[in-house]
């Protein structure tokens, strides 16, 4: 247990030393939050009602899709996994450490947005903060799982950037973060339903989300876990 906890704390520290991760977990999401917060709340006062939720969804999607896979690509596509194998470290450790570390980092970013938005932009707090953080955790776990799958399957950072953007950009444009989805053409609105961010925003902005809205997130999570487990077992047997 000591080794596992040391590994998690170490991974958290390593993430803080990694510029790519710092940019995607903290720098860009928080700058974007300040930028969008300033503009949107000035041109549309109603934006204050959903500013916390939309910027949190943005931060988590960006961090999980663009940041979380980076250390995994490094670990599982190169020679580090061999060093782990011969050095007595189980192969799953890299994934679990990254998972927990990413969760903590992105929860911190979400908390910063949650605390700063009402003070700086007079943003409206969620009606029920405790369930809000419960739903947020579900969304966060789903997105990190997808990020882990990207990190396990993609073998280079350049390819990772391409594939991650293919998920991240539609999440930005089609989920309702930037503008209401009913303004989109029907086809694109339907495509938006295939993205976790759409369901995340719907759940976080509702005071009483329907159980059915959680099913897509559960499905994304299960598929990601199965794909991740398959890949890990292949890496272990390689």
């Amino acid at each position: 247990m000591g080794a596992f906890i040391y590994g998690v704390i170490l991974q958290w520290k390593l993430d803080l030393r990694n510029k790519g991760i710092l940019v995607t977990y903290y720098l860009v999401p928080l700058l974007f939050f300040l930028f969008i917060g300033t503009i949107f709340t000035s041109i549309n006062p109603l934006a204050k009602d959903t500013l916390i939720q939309s910027m949190t969804i943005f931060a988590i999607t960006m961090g999980a899709f663009l940041g979380t896979p980076i250390p995994l690509v490094e670990l599982y596509s190169g020679d580090i996994k061999k060093a782990y194998k011969v050095g007595g470290i189980p192969i799953w450790v890299g994934v679990v450490n990254n998972y927990i570390s990413a969760f903590v980092h992105l929860m911190i970013t979400s908390l910063i947005i949650f605390l700063v938005a009402p003070l700086v932009f007079d943003a409206r707090l969620p009606d029920k903060p405790l369930p809000y953080f419960g739903y947020l955790s579900i969304f966060l776990i789903t997105c990190i799982s997808i990020g882990v799958v990207l990190g396990l399957y993609i073998k280079s950072i350049s390819k990772l950037t391409m594939f991650s953007q293919m998920l991240f950009l539609p999440s930005m444009m089609l989920s309702g973060i930037m503008f209401p989805t009913d303004m989109l053409p029907k086809v694109l609105e339907n495509v938006g339903f295939l993205l976790p961010a759409t369901w995340g925003l719907r759940i976080l902005t509702s005071s009483e989300p329907k159980i059915l809205w959680f099913l897509p997130l559960l499905l994304f999570f299960l598929v990601a876990i199965i794909l991740g487990a398959c890949k890990l077992s292949r890496i272990a047997m390689d």
Binding site: A3, Y6, G7, L10, K82, G88, I89
Partner: peptide, 26 residues
Amino acid sequence: VQLQSSSLMENITALEAYRLFSKWNR
């Protein structure tokens, strides 16, 4: 084992790496 091509995380320090492997090997 010392491998021919081996690597570790780029930003881990030498002592942290040694400690990590020590802990997993008890």
